[in-house]
Computed example of a mutant assay.
Amino acid sequence: MKPAMIAALMGASLSLPVAALAGDAAAGESEYRKCRACHMIQDADGNDIVKGGVTGPNLWNIMGQPIASVEGYRYGEGILAAAAANPDLVWTEEELVAYITDPQAWVREKSGDASARSKMTFKLNRGQEDIAAYLTSVSPDAPAAE
């Protein structure tokens, strides 16, 4: 295949609609094991969906919720600045994928502060879409996909 054709095909694949990039919730449930060290998923009645740590906020019903809004969790300054700079910003699959790919870069972009830091230092380099789909599946109040 000619280099020009390869470049054209690669460019076309980068412009796929978001729906074509949708994750697999079942695969995300398995991938979520990487998140359990810091995050639990516990429903509103206190039932554990996934037992996990409390270093990070509970991720039950996170999709569609405002950034940095889990009651009782002590957020870092970086994500609080991002939330203050974007009061209408809510967790969507797209935002969560960007955040878990590089939390510090996301916080810096959203806060507008090049020195902002994220408390979350863990980065994922694959499976982000699947984890986002899984977290949507445990977010009963999440807005319906368009």
Results as ranks from 00 to 15, higher is better:
residue 1 M to H: 07
residue 2 K to A: 13
residue 3 P to C: 05
residue 4 A to H: 14
residue 5 M to F: 09
residue 9 L to E: 09
residue 10 M to W: 12
residue 10 M to Q: 11
residue 12 A to E: 13
residue 13 S to M: 15
residue 13 S to A: 12
residue 14 L to I: 06
residue 14 L to M: 13
residue 15 S to C: 08
residue 15 S to R: 13
residue 16 L to D: 04
residue 17 P to V: 11
residue 18 V to H: 08
residue 19 A to H: 07
residue 21 L to H: 07
residue 23 G to Q: 04
residue 24 D to I: 06
residue 24 D to P: 08
residue 26 A to M: 07
residue 27 A to W: 00
residue 28 G to S: 09
residue 28 G to L: 12
residue 29 E to K: 15
residue 30 S to M: 11
residue 31 E to S: 13
residue 31 E to T: 14
residue 34 K to N: 08
residue 35 C to P: 06
residue 36 R to S: 15
residue 36 R to P: 01
residue 38 C to K: 00
residue 38 C to N: 04
residue 39 H to G: 15
residue 40 M to H: 09
residue 41 I to M: 14
residue 44 A to C: 04
residue 44 A to H: 03
residue 46 G to R: 01
residue 46 G to H: 00
residue 49 I to L: 14
residue 52 G to D: 03
residue 52 G to T: 00
residue 56 G to V: 01
residue 57 P to A: 12
residue 58 N to F: 13
residue 58 N to V: 14
residue 59 L to Q: 03
residue 61 N to Q: 11
residue 62 I to L: 15
residue 63 M to T: 02
residue 63 M to P: 03
residue 65 Q to G: 05
residue 66 P to Q: 14
residue 67 I to Q: 07
residue 68 A to W: 09
residue 68 A to H: 04
residue 68 A to Y: 06
residue 70 V to S: 01
residue 71 E to Y: 04
residue 71 E to D: 13
residue 73 Y to W: 04
residue 74 R to M: 10
residue 75 Y to I: 00
residue 76 G to A: 07
residue 76 G to K: 05
residue 77 E to F: 05
residue 77 E to S: 12
residue 77 E to A: 14
residue 78 G to P: 10
residue 82 A to G: 07
residue 82 A to C: 11
residue 83 A to C: 07
residue 84 A to L: 02
residue 88 D to E: 15
residue 89 L to V: 04
residue 89 L to R: 08
residue 90 V to R: 12
residue 92 T to S: 15
residue 93 E to L: 03
residue 93 E to A: 09
residue 94 E to M: 08
residue 96 L to T: 02
residue 96 L to N: 02
residue 97 V to P: 03
residue 97 V to C: 07
residue 98 A to F: 11
residue 99 Y to L: 02
residue 99 Y to M: 00
residue 101 T to P: 04
residue 101 T to R: 11
residue 103 P to F: 01
residue 104 Q to C: 00
residue 104 Q to A: 09
residue 107 V to R: 03
residue 107 V to K: 01
residue 107 V to G: 02
residue 107 V to T: 08
residue 110 K to P: 00
residue 111 S to Q: 06
residue 112 G to H: 04
residue 112 G to K: 07
residue 113 D to L: 06
residue 113 D to A: 05
residue 113 D to E: 11
residue 115 S to E: 15
residue 115 S to L: 14
residue 115 S to F: 15
residue 116 A to K: 13
residue 117 R to N: 14
residue 117 R to E: 15
residue 118 S to M: 10
residue 118 S to C: 05
residue 120 M to E: 10
residue 121 T to M: 10
residue 122 F to A: 09
residue 122 F to I: 08
residue 123 K to F: 01
residue 125 N to Y: 05
residue 125 N to K: 09
residue 126 R to D: 14
residue 133 A to E: 02
residue 134 Y to M: 04
residue 135 L to S: 02
residue 136 T to K: 11
residue 136 T to Y: 10
residue 136 T to L: 09
residue 137 S to A: 13
residue 138 V to R: 00
residue 141 D to M: 04
residue 143 P to S: 01
